Simulated assay, not measured.
Amino acid sequence: MTACKKDKGTPPNYAKADDVLAAHAIKQQSFTGNADAGFTITGEKGTKVTFAPNAFVDGAGNVVSGTVTVTLKEVLSKKDVLFSGVMTESNGQLLESGGEILVKAQKDGAELQVNPKLQDKGAQVEIPKVMNNGDMGLFIQERRQQGGGASGGNQQESPYTWVPAPYYPFGNGPNSYTFSLPSFSWVNCDRFYSDPNPKTTITALPAFQDNNQVSDLQVMLVFKNIATVITLPFDYTSQKFQSYQNSLPIGLQADLIILGKDSDGFIQFGTQSITIGANMHIDAPVHKATQAEVDAFLATI
């Protein structure tokens, strides 16, 4: 006797969430230099930071000498923003980014600061115009304004946001943005996004295809035609992921992206192309995904 049996094929090689995040994490680059003489570092993506002689001080304000260690993170694409955790919004207002960087300095394990006596001459920065070529200004991170969330502070959101730093000179050259580094912290070449269309609020909920519990959920929008990536914080009042109130221009196109980690450690992943509509709600399918599926989508943004 003989029988036929359907070949189910090789099961998908689903990706672990930690592996996906590690593969796309923003690399921290490390450099050393002589604080007395000054030196220049150049990042892998083209960011250049030039430190003047005696540009570093310790926690007590004393000028530091000898060898110092400088680290650099470059966020120069929408994909970089997506995995940096530092989104392009200012107290709920959309920003267009020309690039973000994080510069830190240490000596013997102790954090250093930019020498304030050098004013705006301590550390000069050039960021290549690979993410955007529009006219930008310098933004720095500060504590979010009270009540800046979508429902009067009932959102699970980052406590920090971007605010303009108009007191620092900023240059829009043909190939790079140039400015003085105000401090060893995140800085951003940014501008407020202007759109004449009416603004609205949208909500979203993941629709899971698996029964496993999912944690570390992130719901984000990557906009199609502008260098803008935002998160939709979870709003405890509506029990939905929700944009900031009346912050999104109707008609703007974006990719909704959901990332999470199930109880087996696999990534839960979903994407959906949307056009912002008035008071729209999105039920977004989310499923276990392979590394190749995630990478293929990321190559399109």
Rank of each mutant, 00 (worst) to 15 (best):
T2R: 13
C4T: 13
D7Q: 12
K8N: 15
P11M: 07
P11F: 09
N13P: 02
Y14S: 04
L21H: 13
I26K: 05
G43P: 08
E44T: 15
K48C: 05
V49T: 00
F51T: 02
A55I: 05
N62S: 13
V63L: 06
S65W: 05
T69S: 08
V70D: 00
E74M: 06
M87P: 00
G99W: 00
K107Y: 08
A110I: 12
A110R: 14
L112S: 03
L112M: 07
V114H: 00
Q119I: 11
Q119M: 13
Q124P: 02
E126Q: 12
I127N: 01
K129C: 09
G134N: 14
I140D: 00
R143H: 07
R144K: 12
Q146H: 14
Q146P: 07
G147F: 08
G152N: 12
P159D: 04
Y160M: 15
Y160S: 09
T161S: 08
T161W: 03
V163S: 03
Y168F: 14
G171C: 02
G173A: 13
N175I: 07
N175A: 13
N175C: 01
P182E: 04
N188L: 05
R191Q: 11
K199E: 04
T201M: 09
A204H: 04
A207M: 12
D216Q: 15
L217I: 15
M220C: 14
V222H: 01
N225M: 03
N225L: 02
P233S: 08
F241W: 15
S243P: 05
Q245W: 11
P249W: 09
G251E: 03
D255C: 10
L256P: 05
I257M: 13
G260F: 08
K261P: 02
D264Y: 15
I274Q: 09
T275V: 12
G277C: 05
P285V: 07
P285F: 04
V286H: 09
Q291A: 15
E293M: 08
D295Q: 11
A296P: 11
A299P: 02
T300W: 07
